[in-house]
Each structure stands twice: as C-alpha cells, then as structure tokens.
C-alpha cells in the first residue's frame, strides 16, 4: 500500500535506528567537548537514545498492545536522570563559581 521502497520498514525499526544514531551522536559529543553543560546535555541525549531502544523494542507493531514493562523502565530512567542531572548541574555551577574566584 505504501509507495515507500523499503516495504519492511516499520515505525518500530525507524525509532530503533534513531535511538542508535542518538547514542552515537551523544557519545561523540561527550568525547569531543570540554564544556561542562554540553557534556551534561550529551548524557541526557544518550539516555533518550537508550529509551528509544527500550520503547521501540516494547512495540509489537500496529494494533498490538505494547509491553508495559519497558515503559516502566523508561519512566524510572527519566526520573533518575533528572535527579542526576540536577546534581551534575549543581556541581558544575559550583565549579564555575569557585573557578572564577580562586584555585585552591
């Protein structure tokens, strides 16, 4: 029905691949950036990439009910990540403040 040249391309696979690409992008920037904030952002993008793998794997194709357990994993992961991000940002701000003043 679809005119698209790859007949077995499903939304599930597309987001799976997008997740893989996000992991690559995030790790690349993590290895090439020295800015604290960029590295924190990279870790957030990395976790979204992982979530994409989870959610895409949970999907059983159109019409089928998806597996709820990976959804719960991703929910937990999101909350955990916001907590760690807050801690990272607090540390980064503190380093930036003390760094501007003195080097003990």
């Amino acid at each position: 029905m679809t005119p698209f040249p790859f007949p077995d391309l499903t939304p599930q696979l597309i987001y799976h691949l997008a997740g893989a690409a996000l992991v690559g992008i995030a790790l690349y920037r993590g290895a090439t950036s020295s800015d604290l904030l960029t590295r924190i952002l990279a870790l957030n993008v990395l976790s979204v990439g992982i979530a994409a793998v989870f959610v895409a794997a949970a999907n059983r194709g159109a019409g089928a009910v998806p597996d709820p357990v990976p959804h719960a994993f991703v929910l937990t992961g999101i909350v955990v990540l916001v907590a760690v991000t807050a801690a990272l940002l607090a540390l980064a701000e503190r380093i930036d403040l003390t760094g501007a003043k003195s080097d003990d």
Binding site: N44, A58, H71, L81
Partner: peptide, 19 residues
C-alpha cells in the same frame, strides 16, 4: 507514535520541561 503515552507524558513534563 510508539503507543507509550505514559512515557510521553513523563518525557514532556520531566525529561524535557524540568530538565
């Protein structure tokens, strides 16, 4: 799109908004 509305809600509110 992947039938995960719970996750979508949390991502919008916490993963994107609060972060």
């Amino acid at each position: 799109r992947l039938d995960a509305p719970d996750v979508a809600l949390a991502e919008a509110a916490i993963g994107s908004g609060l972060t």
